[in-house]
């Protein structure tokens, strides 16, 4: 059986909109964020995401796990690019050195050097703002979108009946997969299997994951066969479908969509005019002596 995300009805900014309107707005902000490398613009978008987060009514406890995971992930990668200096080289050519750390040792004649440059700092900050903004907006969706409305939302966005229902099932499949994974891990631990003790080469390690991967995969396949049978037995896909739930756009929803589209057009225009690229304040560059 498919389980749902931890949605709850809340009095919040995000839930005051029609889910279709919110998804359109979400898509616009996503695209806009991907256009920019300029930290000033990105901070505005991040501010918007933080506003939605703070007014979402989701408690820290509920979303702690998701956020800790994503923050860990972002910090790790932002830090990695910062250390290596790679990743940013497409958006800046010149670097202004602030400090240079030299390791007090050499390995085979190579001395590790960490160059802290203005560009690397600003690139890491931009990257962080970008991904974090997107992450906040994305994490909030499962907490804020009523699972009972998934299907009709996608239908309302113009997808055909069958695909809209398939999207509905897919959205609910992810948490179901998580639950199955946990059950399998517990069942195998009860047979003395310890994930922590897996050793050996890469292939050996993957092989030793079999006790987890195989049941979860098989379960997913059997589960989907059951779902198909259950749908067939209740006449799914025979003709145009009535959706019991109804969605109606109100003024605020139209305003939200308009705002999203406006953002998108504005971003496109700015980009076209040459704004929005990677930015490091001139004053800082002068101060460093560039």
């Amino acid at each position: 059986m498919l389980v749902a995300w931890r949605y709850r009805k809340r009095k919040s900014f995000i839930q005051s909109f029609d889910p279709r309107a919110w998804l359109i707005f979400y898509a616009c902000t996503l695209v806009v964020t991907l256009f920019f490398w300029d930290l000033r613009f990105l901070l505005v978008l991040l501010g918007l995401a933080v506003f939605v987060l703070v007014t979402s009514g989701v408690t820290w406890k509920e979303m702690r796990r998701a956020f800790l995971f994503i923050i860990g992930f972002i910090v790790f990668f932002a830090f990695l690019t910062f250390l290596t200096g790679r990743g940013g080289t497409e958006v800046y050519r010149q670097e202004h050195l602030l400090v240079e750390f030299r390791a007090p040792f050499s390995l085979f004649g190579w001395t590790p050097v960490l160059k802290v440059t203005l560009e690397r700092i600003f690139f890491a900050a931009s990257q962080f703002a970008r991904i974090f903004g997107i992450a906040i907006m994305t994490i909030l969706i499962p907490y804020s979108l009523d699972p009972a409305l998934y299907g009709v939302t996608f239908r309302g966005l113009g997808l055909p009946d069958k695909i809209a229902y398939a999207m509905d099932l897919t959205m609910r499949f992810i948490p179901t997969f998580g639950r199955d994974f946990q059950l399998t891990r517990d069942a195998q631990r009860a047979r003395g299997y310890e994930l922590e003790k897996i050793r050996g080469g890469l292939i050996e390690q993957v092989r030793k994951l079999g006790p987890l991967i195989v049941p979860v995969t098989i379960h997913a396949i059997i589960g989907s066969e059951d779902i198909i049978d259950a749908m067939d037995l209740r006449a799914f896909g025979v003709g145009p479908r009535t959706w019991l739930e109804q969605l109606t756009y109100r003024t605020r929803d139209r305003l939200l969509i308009a705002f999203g589209l406006l953002l998108l057009v504005a971003a496109l225009t700015l980009m076209f005019l040459g704004y929005g690229g990677f930015w490091v304040p001139e004053s800082l560059i002068r101060a460093v002596g560039g």
């Binding site: 006449a235 025979v238 479908r241």
Partner: peptide, 22 residues
């Protein structure tokens, strides 16, 4: 567990009827 598709009871009970396009 293998048969229920809807997230809410009402959606589940209505599922077949929705498919018939009533």
């Amino acid at each position: 567990e293998r048969q229920i598709l809807g997230t809410k009871v009402l959606n589940e009970v209505a599922f077949g009827l929705e498919n018939l396009g009533l």
